[in-house]
Design a binder for these strands. Structure first.
Lengths: 220, 220
DNA sequence: CCATGTGAACAAATTCACAGCA
DNA sequence: TGCTGTGAATTTGTTCACATGG
């Protein structure tokens, strides 16, 4: 192991800001698999067996984990609860993240109810919309507020993450409002290309593209 | 240009099955940008300008397009309506794709209504659920049918694509049922790892992973 | 001329192969 | 012995730089 400054006993291999998006998404998947194993009472697992059970790649699991440190026991494998715990901490999932939803249409409401029901690390603390018909509606455990209250809502709740689920024509305006309100990470479900803002993490979920890729596969 | 067999005047550069998922998803994005330009009456655009307007990379646009053929006029740029048309055909978006939704909970209903409203190339022809409370409910223009009717539904409607939006514990069973019913492409929104089935395209949309990547970015 | 299209250079990600340690 | 962790090899993806041709 290189003598990286600040590396602990089960040392951190490299600086965390260099970890790729692909690796992070897979780590999140490994964590889900570990939770399932944990619930089933499995205490130890090798990368090989983890890969076989969940259709993953054993080498890739080990390489991905190597970005964060050393977690296994050579010749044995990984301790399931320990690895689950360590990965949760590394992803910042040991605390709850307050989250606001901008656009309480079909998709926004679905996420509000879904995350309400399945709350793990993320808590929906507010939802806003421009439509007077929608404002005031109860969805899950919250009441929809007007978009002009966004800044106040973010201040009050300390929300750092936002879901952007507005129609295309409102996307740019809502995005600017979110930046202005001071959120630090945005998951954009609208089909609009938004400019990166320094200090604010923007991720796009291109649902339409996913469907269109399937359509491409089906072309005869 | 290499003398590829079957290459037309604006020739196909290579075989389409080798095009990567990354390229396909970007082509889908370019297509959306072209539609916007088209609506605004823009008739010609260069890769440079397209990139600037929509926060893309000009070189990458040209490289991506090169997978499918030659579409531009050197020294000039691309004809917007023509390119839009050609890309639509290439992705198989010139015909409508019937689509079934398995799991009419929050997410399933949201997609049913969303695609109903915003129907372009994809038509929701049916939704199924196991919950007796949900069966029979009207969502958008359709009535939720029991999951045991899935096979018949797929046969009747010719659905080739399915959205899998069931809770985790039902995912594997529903997946097997979809394979059995004969759909050819599945977009899986459940957080369960499913095995690839030869001849059936499976894409996973990991919503949880996207959120967790944002959480990672926010770790202090 | 000027923007496309493309080989060549570069970078990133994945897989291989095996050293090293429990 | 057996599995982890990791350099080295390979594959895949992106960017550069420029020849090509309308």
């Amino acid at each position: 192991m290189p003598g990286a400054l600040g590396a602990r006993a089960e040392g951190l291999a490299a600086d965390l800001s260099a970890v790729s998006s692909l690796t992070l998404n897979r780590i999140s998947i490994y964590l889900r698999c570990l939770r399932i194993l944990s619930e089933r009472g499995v205490r130890r697992i090798s990368s090989q067996e983890l890969a076989q059970r969940f259709h993953l790649s054993a080498t890739q699991i080990r390489k991905d984990l190597a970005c964060f440190g050393e977690f296994g026991i050579r010749g044995v494998g990984y301790d399931v609860p320990t690895l689950e715990q360590r990965l949760s901490e590394l992803l910042g999932l040991d605390r709850e993240h307050p989250l606001v939803i901008v656009g309480m249409g079909n998709l926004g409401c679905a996420f509000a109810r879904h995350l309400e029901f399945n709350r793990r690390c993320f808590r929906v603390v507010g939802g806003v919309d421009v439509d007077p018909q929608t404002i005031g509606k109860r969805v899950g455990g919250l009441v929809v507020r007007p978009t002009r209250d966004l800044r106040r809502l973010v201040r009050e709740t300390g929300a750092e993450i936002a879901l952007l689920t507005v129609p295309p024509e409102a996307a740019r305006q809502s995005y600017d409002a979110l930046i202005e309100a001071g959120v630090r990470a945005i998951l954009n479900f609208s089909p609009i290309r938004l400019p990166q803002q320094p200090g604010v993490k923007l991720k796009n979920v291109e649902l339409r593209s996913q469907l269109e890729e399937l359509a491409f596969f089906l072309r005869d």
